[in-house]
């Protein structure tokens, strides 16, 4: 319309009010600030898309394993994870009502039988279940004489390890650091490959092999 509407950039003719120039810059500043803020917030939220609400790599990966103590499932006494420092610990959370737990049990038994000599300790944690049902499960699907079975009656070890469903298997290195988690059932091959990486001093991948089970 009028000349002053279109000539803000090229008019140092002395009649233009000096305040007009910074006004442009101020608007640019506001716009750029809002834009950058929007980009940052978008990036933050976008990075969360595609992730399950709670299921993700455990926040405990890379941290020291909690020093939880639990009673044995089928004998007197208690197991403390701290007693097995120096070993690789395979900590498997299971329950009798969990179908994938039934499938993985023979593989866990085989791995425990074969790998304990390599300085690997297998601990089966019965979670959200009662001791009788747990023992019957072991009668049916197998138990390893070389593995330890404990009862997490008050869910304390599950809280310590952030368990959100079954089965979940944690791998703790010889320094007591949680290195990996397998969400879902494990196979003998996956167990040995994961343990192998730890024996080699590498960090194994945390993987999800199937849907986690929860009890209604």
């Amino acid at each position: 319309m009028s000349q002053s509407d279109t000539s803000s950039e090229s008019e140092p003719d002395g009649n233009t009010e000096p305040a007009e120039e910074p006004k442009q810059g101020r608007m640019g500043l506001v716009v750029s600030t809002l834009f950058i803020g929007a980009v940052v917030l978008f990036a933050m939220f976008a990075s969360q898309f595609g992730q399950d609400k709670i299921i993700s790599a455990s926040p405990l990966i890379g941290r020291s394993a909690p020093a939880t103590v639990l009673p044995y499932l089928e004998r007197a006494g208690e197991l403390s994870l701290a007693d097995y420092e120096g070993d690789i610990i395979v900590l498997n959370f299971w329950a009798s009502w969990c179908p994938p737990c039934r499938l993985e049990q023979p593989d866990l038994v085989r791995a425990a039988d074969e790998l304990t000599d390599l300085g690997v300790t297998f601990v089966g944690v019965l979670f959200n279940d009662d001791a009788g049902a747990g023992s019957r499960f072991l009668d049916t699907y197998g138990r390893s004489d070389r593995a330890h079975y404990v009862l997490d009656d008050k869910s304390r070890m599950a809280f310590d390890f952030g368990v959100i469903g079954l089965p979940e298997t944690f791998f703790i290195d010889r320094n007591g650091i949680i290195q990996a988690k397998i969400s879902g059932g494990v196979s003998y091959e996956l167990l040995t490959a994961t343990i192998e990486q730890m024996i080699l001093g590498n960090t194994p991948d945390s993987v999800k092999t199937g849907e986690l089970q929860t009890r209604d």
């Binding site: 500043l29 750029s32 600030t33 950058i36 803020g37 980009v39 940052v40 990036a43 933050m44 990075s47 969360q48 790599a57 990966i61 990486q197 080699l200 590498n202 960090t203 194994p204 991948d205 945390s206």
Partner: peptide
């Protein structure tokens, strides 16, 4: 502002994704 926002953005994104470093394959 751009620099600080970018730093915050990068820290946020890196921190949120927390990628598992791939195992060293020797």
């Amino acid at each position: 502002i751009g620099f600080v926002a970018a730093v915050i953005g990068v820290v946020a994104i890196v921190g949120l994704n927390n990628p598992q470093s791939n195992a060293t394959e020797g």
